[in-house]
Design a protein around this nucleic acid. Sequence first.
DNA 1: TATAGGGCCTGTACTTACTACAGGTTCAAG
DNA 2: CTTGAACCTGTAGTAAGTACAGGCCCTATA
Lengths: 137, 137
Amino acid sequence: MSNGRRLTRGKLSKLTGCNIETIRYYERIGLLPEPPRSAGGHRLYAEDHLKRLVFIRRCRELGFSLEEVRAFLALVDGGKYTCGEVKTLTLHHLQSIREKIADMRRLERTLAEMSAQCDGGTVPECPIIDALFETRL
Amino acid sequence: MSNGRRLTRGKLSKLTGCNIETIRYYERIGLLPEPPRSAGGHRLYAEDHLKRLVFIRRCRELGFSLEEVRAFLALVDGGKYTCGEVKTLTLHHLQSIREKIADMRRLERTLAEMSAQCDGGTVPECPIIDALFETRL
DNA sequence: TATAGGGCCTGTACTTACTACAGGTTCAAG
DNA sequence: CTTGAACCTGTAGTAAGTACAGGCCCTATA
């Protein structure tokens, strides 16, 4: 049940772990709706904002871009999204994560090999530096 | 041997695969030295520039930040670097790559699990969306 | 009720590593 | 000599925030 508690920006920040400036940023780019204000102009958030911000942060933690988050929110806001649409977006993202992992593993392997060539001695001749000067292709 | 050929920015770009604007950018931030100019003011690069740009690009491909590249170049330019210094920087970077891979694998697993929960049907109830609204701690 | 000091307000600037113009000049091939 | 590609400069844009400065508000305590 929504108890009518009103949260300041600082409280929302603490509850979600989201940086206080980032909350304002999300509002500016239209991810978080403008909340009502106090007489003095302070933002007063409700449970809905909290829920939405948790959603955004969770998406970000999972590596979704803000545009992808926006797409999710549009589906949810539209009210008539389907499971299929959501799954498509998610699988797409999963694919790109997998590609990034593959890229990083190649980097890892190359760096490990380069390091292994180098004895870390005190001479000013280094196989790592040599390798970096190599045109590869 | 350095044949005294002079390269335009466009040629350097083509030879290295580095975007033509990026070359100017590297010059601006002090990674690439200012080349001599033609009478009309066009940049004329020599073999040294080519070599250095290849080095920078190779570092970038391997995921080093521009500041790390700058550090490498400072060592090389200083002339009296040691293998040990280079190896330390490289192992540091390797470590951070490994951490990133671990992070990404966690994301991958979570996303795969979430997707598996979802049958992709046409109903407007989606376990992925539900999961994204969950506060996890 | 007065006040102190923390929290909030706004706008703007900075970050990384580029990329993309606009508007003008130079170069080189034919 | 012409013409069109390539180059020149400065500036602005990208993602996703983060970090101020300078000023106002809010509330707990005396």
